[in-house]
Every structure is written in C-alpha cells, then in structure tokens.
Amino acid sequence: MMPTKVAVLIMRGICKRWALKDCGSKVRKAMLAICACFGILPVAGARAEAKDGDVELGAYLSAECVTCHQVNAQTEEIPQIAGLDPNAFMAAMQAYKAKQREHPIMQMMAGRLNDEEIVALAAYFSTLE
C-alpha cells in the first residue's frame, strides 16, 4: 500500500498545482501513470522500465523531439534531453498524454506516443551522455 499512498499524495499535489476543475477520470489516468513509474502496474503488458525499451525505435522517435529540444543545450523555455531521468521522463510523457500537465505542443506530441514508444524513448535517452 505504501507506494500507492505516495502516489495519491503526489496526485493531490498535482491536482492542486494545476487547479483541475474535473479530476475524476483524469486522476485515474494519472494514477496509472504514476503507479507505472513506481513499478507497481504493468503498462500495456510490458513493465515500463527504460532498460527494456527498443533503443533503435527510440532513436528514430527522438528525431521528432530534437526539432525543439537540443540534446546538450538547455534553453530558457525548452529543456535539454541529455541527463533526463528515465522514470521522470516516462511519468512526464504519461502526464502530458493524459492532459494532466499543461503545454499544448507536449500534450499533442505525447498524445500519440503509445506506451511502448515512451519506453523506447526513455531507453534511447538513457544511452545519451
């Protein structure tokens, strides 16, 4: 139960932070996302761990990211890719996908990534220096 409690606490924080009007189904979706990164639940039949991801697929998909995100240069509004924590990255993608986290471009881009693709990206990014 402990990790779930942690997740619930985090969710409350998220709801407060983004001042969500309607939390019902969004909470459930985000719960899944957050539980996934605590390694509690399987996602789409595969455990969401970066080491299991398809690095080559991730490399291909990452081409879409680097139009805006540089690998090794942090800019004011757009974070760099290298050094991202894989679990934090996967949770962020799931949160954008569930529209729990605000940003129209990221919601759109993450919105069409399936779970396998998110893991593949995490796998590829963890190979970067």
């Binding site: 139009t67 805006c68 240069a73 800019t75 004011e76 757009i78 919601q107 759109m108």
Partner: peptide
C-alpha cells in the same frame, strides 16, 4: 490527426513564454 492554436485574449505572460519558446526552437532546429 490532432492540433492546437493559441487563443485570442491569452495573458501577456503566456504570449511572452510562447515567443521565448520560439527562440529556443529556432536554436534547436
């Protein structure tokens, strides 16, 4: 498939952030 567009009447901070984001995008692309 899917898309978005900025809205009329957005607040000035968001518009400023959007501009700064475009500068960061320019550097990246």
């Amino acid at each position: 498939v899917d898309g978005f567009v900025s809205q009329v009447g957005e607040d000035a901070n968001l518009r400023k952030t959007t501009y700064e984001e475009s500068e960061n995008w320019y550097a990246a692309i």
